[in-house]
Design a protein around this nucleic acid. Sequence first.
DNA 1: TAGGGGAACTTGTACAAACAAGGCCAGACC
DNA 2: GGTCTGGCCTTGTTTGTACAAGTTCCCCTA
Lengths: 243, 243
Amino acid sequence: MAARYEHIAAELRDEILAGVHPVGAQLPSEAELAARYSAARGTVRQAVAVLAAEGLVGSRQGARRIVLGGERSQSFAELHSFAQWAKSKGHTVGGEVLGQRRRRAGPAEAVRLSTTEVLEVLRLRTLEGEPVLLERTVYASWIAPAVEALPSDCESVTQALYDRVGLVFAYGEHLIDAVAAGTEDARLLGVRRGSPLLRQRRITTTQEGRPVEWSDDRYRAGSVAFSIRNSIGANPLTRLALP
Amino acid sequence: MAARYEHIAAELRDEILAGVHPVGAQLPSEAELAARYSAARGTVRQAVAVLAAEGLVGSRQGARRIVLGGERSQSFAELHSFAQWAKSKGHTVGGEVLGQRRRRAGPAEAVRLSTTEVLEVLRLRTLEGEPVLLERTVYASWIAPAVEALPSDCESVTQALYDRVGLVFAYGEHLIDAVAAGTEDARLLGVRRGSPLLRQRRITTTQEGRPVEWSDDRYRAGSVAFSIRNSIGANPLTRLALP
DNA sequence: TAGGGGAACTTGTACAAACAAGGCCAGACC
DNA sequence: GGTCTGGCCTTGTTTGTACAAGTTCCCCTA
């Protein structure tokens, strides 16, 4: 059962996306909303805070809230899982494991995943039949058996791990940059060597903060982009100089 | 004067970054923190909510909050302004305007910036003397005069616009992908044609939700990366299929 | 010793109240 | 006509209370 404020947030979100509150318009005041939903003002504030975090509405002290944008927001699972994302968007997704082996963790991996042995997996993912993404993932040893037990054509690893061992990915850190395709990248993705790839390196942890995997994902240029909304109040995005 | 919860958040953040609460450790309970700061629990909750939004701590109902990461978080201004970011990181930054002209807005620009005329500016930015970033920015007509009045070697446009006309950038939407360097890109950035560039397209608006600029920024590969923290509770990052 | 039960603890949700701070507008004033 | 001021509206901050829901861990039992 969802919380009260989530109901209110969902209803307001629907109204915004349906055009009841068009972009640029003002949202009803907190007092009005509180009256409409017979809720306390604090509860309404929590609801609109959700929308603000999604970048759907903005606010300034003293003035009414403004609708900033329509259309948005994927769940964490959809971002994390290529297959779940593609399916929810109506794409046809494919993929297979090209290689998989256990090995000792390098020093950087040992620190990041707090483990001494790792399972390294190379996967190629396709979208509408076209190779689009090359995943080089390193799993911590405690989850390795569950990953090895998966069929090599398993579509959604995230989903499978949840179904089988109840694993939930909860926190992620992502590093996004551009690289030139190496020989192997080029061959597997069907592009020329040196052509641009969008690289997403990420580390994911469980709800308890335990690291699960470290992955280097490379997308063919022109196939996929990342989108972020931020504001003066909430800025999850940062820029880094590479050494 | 900053709010109480901001003080508490800042203090906790400092403690985390200083290692008082190492990564993976538990934060004191809300009750303890409330006692320590002689604040209500609600105020403490607001403070830790800030840290959670920054991706510094995670939380689960029933269990203590966990420290997820050290080192983090730039202000919105630092992300938005290349110069402010570079300075705060101790880099030496340079740059110049290579071209600037007014023209009629294209159909897409007219919608995005809600204007019929735009000011187009091409800027090259350097880091430690090396060309790193090529900015193609389109300003809405209402801010164009202020931008034209800036000196061509103005380091921080963001800062200058704030100082002169009080303009504050408040909301942004970013689209990040990889592209191959075109002829002009390659010449100005000093790379070979076709080499990978990290592209960040963004649209920025004021606090009132009024669009200010639309920019296409291209970083030389290997110079800069973007970093995002997200969680199951707050996911500002989304993946998009390109047409 | 292994397991179950449960108490104590911790975070999540909701309500109520009050004041502060800033925006907005209309009416007064120059 | 233009400007300024004051009152009203709206969001921001803080405190207090109560209960719900989930986690942790100890103790007791089989």
